[in-house]
Design a protein around this nucleic acid. Structure first.
Lengths: 220, 220
DNA sequence: TGGGTTAAACTGTGATCACAGAATCATGTA
DNA sequence: TACATGATTCTGTGATCACAGTTTAACCCA
């Protein structure tokens, strides 16, 4: 069961929720590769549960298009084309931009401190070539920001977008991204939040999401 | 099975998807009231299927917070408070505003014609005091607009928001909304689209969503 | 009659089985 | 050797059962 880190929002009331949270986190951090196939029975054995919780978790992920599920065919991780990826990063830019705007008004000193630590963690993860840890910390960074909006609906929607873009990001990130091409943005975002500059925070976060699109274009 | 209108996006490959689509549409058009309780076995009998497809549909709706599902307790339709409703309409304004902006660039003559017909349908539905039909046509109106973006992810997210706000809208709409207080907006939206005025289309659609928040404040 | 307690009915949850379609692999033929 | 065809394995899907909490209702006692 504890094969992946649990997300902060894990309610874990029942087995289905646990499996769902675990698989979703694996998607976010890139522990599942594009076009990879997922079988209910195989996963059930891995998790040590029956097929029932797994099938509900897979169906749930498929319902938010984090997985692809066709009738009588194995579930599989989506392999995004450039158009689909652009659409997702476009929505991320919209939602996270709006979230950052609100977050800039609610941010506290402890939030700044936490974000600064995450920037360091992301740096070390990169130096260790640990793509999973890198994406996990990146997710935590953004997650902390839009949790400051107090809008849980907004939060779950953005989370879903990370689950959908995670597999592709993990697949492409080690190939051609240099540490300079992105790392400069996160400290700038922290600075905008500290200064309560909502407009700048929005702009920077939107650019950070746009970076995902650019990364995709560079690959294809 | 055919107890509610099927949404345009209904794939309906399996029973779970059919039940899910049907229940979601009932939420959107207000055929399920806030705090109403839903039982797996009861619904299974109504739909003439086993409990299995129903439980998956209910879990799926609960996963997007269109229903509330606690452990070992009956599923129920959320009864939003003012803060929750405001959060949802806020997201709707963001997403639909961005969608309208893109739609204004892609709109065709046949789309305009279709939207104009829907305005008429909505008018007659109001005169007939048919709240269900009214909300259905309203949904179709907005749905058509953001389908023009070609961004299916955006589409499903907005749909989910309609499912979450539908029950409350249906409950409050017959109480205090006069036909003048909103109807003026839809023809204006059509005009903005026809003129390919993206900025105006965005502004009007955002205001249309904001109307939901105002309606809520008037109630509480 | 009122209140508390118990029993019955109802709830979602997990597990297991049967089934039909999809995919894969082996086998036999040209 | 190449290819078609067969069987076997694997896939999700639907149904049914047992179980443990939750809720509701009835009932009995004061």
């Amino acid at each position: 069961m504890d094969t992946a880190a649990q997300p902060e929002t894990a309610p874990a009331e029942n087995l289905s929720a646990k499996v769902y949270a675990d698989l979703k986190m694996k998607l976010i951090v890139g522990q599942l590769r594009p076009a990879e196939t997922l079988s209910i029975r195989t996963l059930a054995e891995e998790y040590g549960v029956s097929a029932m919780p797994v099938r509900e978790a897979l169906r749930q992920l498929a319902s938010e298009d984090a997985l692809i599920g066709a009738a009588k065919k194995a579930y599989r991780v989506p392999d995004l084309n450039s158009s689909e990826a652009a659409n997702l990063f476009f929505i991320r830019a919209i939602l996270e931009g709006a979230a950052a705007e609100i977050a800039a008004e609610n941010v506290r000193a402890k939030d700044i401190k936490f974000l600064e630590k995450l920037v360091q963690d992301m740096d070390t993860a990169w130096q260790n070539q640990d793509a999973v840890q890198f994406l996990l910390v990146n997710f935590k960074f953004h997650s902390r920001i839009y949790s400051l909006t107090g809008n849980s609906a907004l939060q779950s929607m953005i989370e879903s977008l990370y689950a959908r873009t995670g597999p592709w990001l993990a697949h492409g990130i080690t190939e051609l991204v240099t540490i300079d091409s992105w790392m400069g943005d996160h400290p700038a975002i922290i600075g905008a939040l500290r200064n309560r500059d909502a407009a700048l925070a929005r702009k920077l976060v939107e650019e950070d999401a746009r970076w995902g699109v650019d990364l995709y274009r560079a690959r294809s």
